[in-house]
């Protein structure tokens, strides 16, 4: 997996996997399985709210600039 692929699809793949675990675990059992499913479905919700809610998005250009500033 190269860096560009990871940067583009890393988070979507991780969130997809976590969602799938959340959907399945509550089908399998109760108690701890239910809690695992709340975590699994809660993570995409939390990530969305955090990304949509933060004031200044860390745009790629900005992070490049920051990195360049650190080097210089």
């Amino acid at each position: 997996m190269n860096a560009a692929f990871r940067r583009l699809w890393g988070w979507p793949l991780l969130l997809g996997l976590v969602t799938a675990i959340g959907l399945i675990s509550a089908l399998v059992g109760d108690g701890a399985y239910d809690m695992l499913s709340w975590l699994g479905l809660g993570m995409p919700v939390a990530v969305s709210l955090w990304c949509a809610g933060r004031k200044k998005p860390a745009s790629h250009e900005a992070s490049l600039k920051r990195r360049a500033a650190k080097k210089g």
């Binding site: 940067r7 890393g10 988070w11 979507p12 969130l15 997809g16 990530v47 969305s48 745009s59």
Partner: peptide
């Protein structure tokens, strides 16, 4: 970057970014 929502540009870009963010997050 993942989850970028550009607010300083046009409203179209902001809503496109939200569309992409929420679309990919709710995908599965």
């Amino acid at each position: 970057d993942f989850g970028t929502v550009r607010r300083n540009n046009s409203p179209r870009v902001k809503w496109l970014d939200l569309h992409n963010l929420l679309g990919i997050v709710t995908l599965v």
